[in-house]
Design a protein around this nucleic acid. Structure first.
Lengths: 212, 212, 212, 212
DNA sequence: TATGAATGAGGTTTCATTCAT
DNA sequence: GATGAATGAAACCTCATTCAT
């Protein structure tokens, strides 16, 4: 069997095991068995537990980023619509790959600086994405506000954090779809709690207008 | 030395070790040494590593909850002011107890269902707190909206998630105080991104009016 | 059982195992079993295979040095008599501790610079001993020769090397006593092959004269 | 590429690797890579690690023996001159092939009886060479001594041991040539320490006389 | 109450060796 | 003739946990 295929099998097994057991609790034995190969082969191809984990993080981070970016490609959309599209893609991807999401969101941040840095880089790209979007929106707005750099970063942290928390919640709550999660977050984050309590709602635009 | 004191020393050492090393990487040897006692004594008092970790989670969860509740006691305040008070207390407590926060936010959720459930209970109480607050506010609002149960839970999840993410960010960014973090989050969550981009800001009330 | 005793048991077992199997081929399992303890205890007391080996080298090097020094203590003897005494002690000690001698002579020099340095230090002390002896003898000699520093070191290397080789040979040849080995070497080294072939012999002094 | 050439490449790589790393620490992977072939080919040609090591020992032992014999061929020379010639050849060869010398002198004697026996055979031939030389010299000497068999073997052991030790020392000390090493040893072994201390020296004969 | 002494079980990693092509 | 793919076995080391005092 060609090396590439075997390697993918191993990384699939590794993501599943790391995601469910955690980095330390996952044993190379278990990963090898799940991949259907012997342990030495895992070491031959992936070098060490640390390298294997890093490779998993990288692969899954790239996949998540790609999914989100693919959701935001339409440049003609309004900022809120772009954000909505990105969030929908994000929630769909994390829901489809719960083990990968566990690796990125929980395990990688908990087991050593170098892993955290790896996933931190991906988060940075997400934050850049959001930041660019906010700046575009701000520039287009009549009363252009003076959002300082730290303000933007703080807001982005909060938004991404909220999305991450919601992804976990949606994963654990049966029957919550990606779109529902995205809607909840858009209402909360875009409309604001204040207006929300007054009955205002955010809704996606549809061809020919905007849904109420 | 009375048992209670010894026990507190051990748990302090355990929280520090678990918070910094993680549940698996922390060794009972290290904890015992840091506590200044022998290992068998740790087992005599706290039974097992699992029990010790659970005890740490419970103690720190209770402490955090108590801190937040103490921040929200004034029932006369407006909902947003209560939220602001609670968030400030939350950020202050997590900043003052970074190891405890690491135990609750990272380690407990990463190492086994039973630990996650423990911290999930605390999170549930926080969500209840927020939910009650939102319902009170909704009832007081003229255009009382029909916020479904799932909507409220979703919003609370998002809010708590945003707060958690901001707590981590504030802990790692020198010079960000609890009040600044709380302000950032209030602007984001209460005012909403939409209004925020138009220049609107949320600000705390002070005796005799409200700061602009 | 007190730690000191256990530690000596372990090191005895380690010297035997390292001496017979070699550093790499010796397994910690085997050492622990031979010592009658569990493997973790060996690690608890001696830290690592490397440290254990180093400790063995040091202990045995010190013992050998002490034995040789104890053999040379009489300062009134003539240089050749002192040399003879030292060699006898050397051969006796190596014959009584064949595993230790294997550790020092074979294993330590073959498995890594740091081990070789350890035993090199001991050899240096032996060479110093011999060098001092040669200098004393030279000073006492009427036709004081101009032995350069490198010459002395070379001669000492050769003498020690010859002794080491003889120790191995004596260990493997049944019926060769320490005194016989020492005599052989004295004839060879002190008298010289040239005179030896002419029938001359070196012999130890005895009270009241010198044996022919 | 013809089998013979390939095989030599592999053994060259093996000698280098075994000499530098030691028998156990050397891996077949490293040897194959250094030889520029795949691992299965090494097994196809050389059968096993053990066989490969044995083959290395044999090849290098033969080469060293041949070099020494080539140095002693002149049968007309005096015994000391023959010895000097042989030692010079020995030191030159070991200096030119340090890895091979490491294999023979250190590794082979340290890793198992069967390897040690292999190199022991070579040493036996060297001893025979020396023994014959000594017997010839003794026969030619007027006062023919009655050197017992064990005495001769002992002396030969000592001489070879001294030569081996000097070879190691010369290899590690920059600027010591084969001739210098041989001279040092001749002075020590032929003249004897006793005369050496009185200023006597051994020196090589040159056409038309003998150097002082 | 408190601890020095001790271990069973399990983890990561390496390596000589063999097939199938 | 030559190799990419694969593994059984064993090594070093760690750790939660207990016993005897």
């Amino acid at each position: 069997m060609p090396r590439e295929v075997r390697e993918r099998q191993m990384m699939d097994a590794a993501v599943a095991t790391f995601g469910q057991r955690g980095y330390r609790a996952a044993s190379m034995d278990e990963i090898a068995e799940l991949a259907g190969v012997s342990k030495p082969l895992v070491y031959l191809y992936l070098n060490s537990k640390e390298d294997l984990f890093t490779a998993c993080i990288r692969r899954e981070a790239d996949a998540l980023l790609a999914a989100v970016r693919a959701g935001v490609v339409e440049p003609d959309l309004a900022p809120d619509e772009q954000l909505w599209a990105g969030l929908t893609a994000f929630f769909a991807h994390t829901a489809d790959n719960p083990d990968a999401w566990s690796v990125l969101h929980r395990q990688a941040r908990t087991h050593g600086e170098s892993f955290a840095a790896e996933v931190g880089a991906m988060r940075g790209e997400l934050v850049d994405l959001v930041t660019g979007l906010l700046r575009d929106a701000g520039r287009a707005s009549p009363a252009s506000p003076d959002l300082g750099d730290r303000d933007v970063v703080g807001v982005a942290q909060a938004l991404v954090g909220a999305a991450e928390a919601l992804a976990g919640w949606a994963n654990e709550t049966p029957g919550v779809s990606a779109k529902e999660a995205a809607s909840t977050l858009m209402n909360f984050a875009w409309t604001g709690l204040g207006r929300l309590l007054e009955g205002e709602r955010w809704s996606a635009a549809v061809p020919g207008g905007r849904l109420s």
